[in-house]
Design a protein around this nucleic acid. Structure first.
Ligand SMILES: [Mn+2]
Ligand SMILES: [Mn+2]
Ligand SMILES: [Mn+2]
Ligand SMILES: [Mn+2]
Lengths: 243, 243
DNA sequence: TCCTATAGTTAGGTATACCTAATTTGGAAG
DNA sequence: CTTCCAAATTAGGTATACCTAACTATAGGA
């Protein structure tokens, strides 16, 4: 009979992390931004829907372990260690590969990708990751236009969202744009975004409708005009085209 | 800001159960057998690799809830309530659909199906279940020859393993058989089983080799003879063919 | 019938990952 | 400089799901 303690420490997964730890790492990666700046306890608490006290606790534990996943200094916020960054990108890779797979192979509606991926990303094996990547032809972009980190745990060249992309909601004046990416988190926004033909990579002509608060947009060659609320425009990133 | 308690009770899943609870229900379903007889604490503890005390605790909790998943009487073992049986079959359906999917769509080797399915079965949504079922053409049998419970939560007609099937290890004398199913739990056995061409539904000619402790088998039309150890023969279920 | 072995239960802990409430701290504003 | 306040930390709990050790009940054998 087993000692039984192989089963304890409850939530170890394929890797050595719990779902919770993975989610902290992803949140730090995201909030740190491209400059990988220090992330505030409050910001983490907000993103993870958890009390600040819980964040402090978790970070102390993560920073105090033998091979720390984060660098944490009291009252000065956190950043990822290189091991932490590697793991965070691994989870992001899982997430985006799963989304791509659900979309392309299982015909999920775009607004349901995120929730399923958010759960499954923590539980698939390396084999599963490799098999779906192979099946999809090693895609580099997910259905929302986000770059899929490489197998080696790095963000690929020409990262998306692109550094130079801006929120549609921040566009001033009229213009023509390329759609960089769309947010994956709000199912309601995603429905409207898809309904008016907005797809990463497509071209978008924008007119800031002076009358209403929103944006009038036409996609691709279509002459159909759609009106987007400010709300929804906050979930679309674009890159301005010259001319 | 959220109240925060949407996030507590940690391990709630798509459904309302934790992974642990699901595993108890599956174990009770399995150990209760076709007659759904009462299952012993000790048997459960063995199957789940958990201390008997932990089993008692869990069963008391499950039996004491408002809509109990089990019927439990002190010192007299447990059986599933009808809600418990429904949920157990739901998880078994997940498990077997996932195995079929990994095998047919993602080309997993047969001996790696079980471990991945054992984890993922608890975390997929109903949508995921339906989509893979549809993609596979609503299969009724998994790669090991086990029946996949229906969407309505019932074991289908002509259940497999069949009532009349016996372990290859219990075969006395020579004879011809149909392979009913193979166990999914031992990766090592599965390798040897596959290596000699044993597949659910195939025909198997058996000669109990008097010399060694094992079984000499030929599958299908092949004239190649393989020797199986008693160990491995315990992982194969067969149905004797008349004549 | 009695006795004892085995199965089961209770009692008391551990670790994870949350919470609220109380306290501390560091930096910006006066 | 001091003050003050938002942000962070500490202190003290909860729930889940395990554990070991100690105790009890039941059923089969003498
Ligand atoms: Mn997640
Ligand atoms: Mn995404
Ligand atoms: Mn399981
Ligand atoms: Mn199986």
């Amino acid at each position: 009979m087993e000692t039984g303690d192989h089963n304890m420490a409850a939530r170890r997964r394929t890797n050595g992390n719990t779902e919770s730890v993975d989610n902290y790492l992803k949140a730090i990666l995201y909030l740190g931004g491209a400059e990988e700046s220090r992330v505030t306890i409050k910001a983490l608490a907000g993103r993870l829907s958890v009390a600040p006290a819980s964040v402090t606790n978790m970070l102390q534990k993560l920073a105090g372990s033998p091979a720390p996943l984060v660098e944490y200094e009291r009252h000065r916020g956190v950043r990822l260690s290189s091991a932490g960054k590697r793991r965070a990108l691994e989870v992001v890779r899982h997430h985006r590969l799963i989304e791509t797979f659900l979309y392309q192979v299982l015909d999920y509606p775009i607004e349901e990708l995120h929730e399923e991926a958010e759960r499954l990303e923590h539980f698939i094996s390396e084999r599963f990751e490799q098999r779906i990547a192979a099946k999809l032809g090693n895609p580099r972009i997910d259905p929302h236009g986000h770059s899929i980190p490489t197998m080696e745990g790095e963000m690929p060249e020409g990262e998306r969202p692109a550094r130079e992309s801006i929120l549609l909601a921040d566009v001033v004046g009229d213009g023509t744009f390329v759609i960089d990416s769309i947010s994956d988190r709000d199912a309601h926004s995603l429905r409207s975004i898809e309904a008016c033909g907005i797809t990463p990579g497509a071209r978008l002509r924008v007119r800031k409708s002076a009358s209403s608060e929103g944006y009038s947009v036409r996609t691709g060659r279509s002459s159909k005009v759609f009106d987007l609320s400010r709300e929804v425009a906050r979930d679309v990133r674009v890159v301005r085209l010259p001319k």
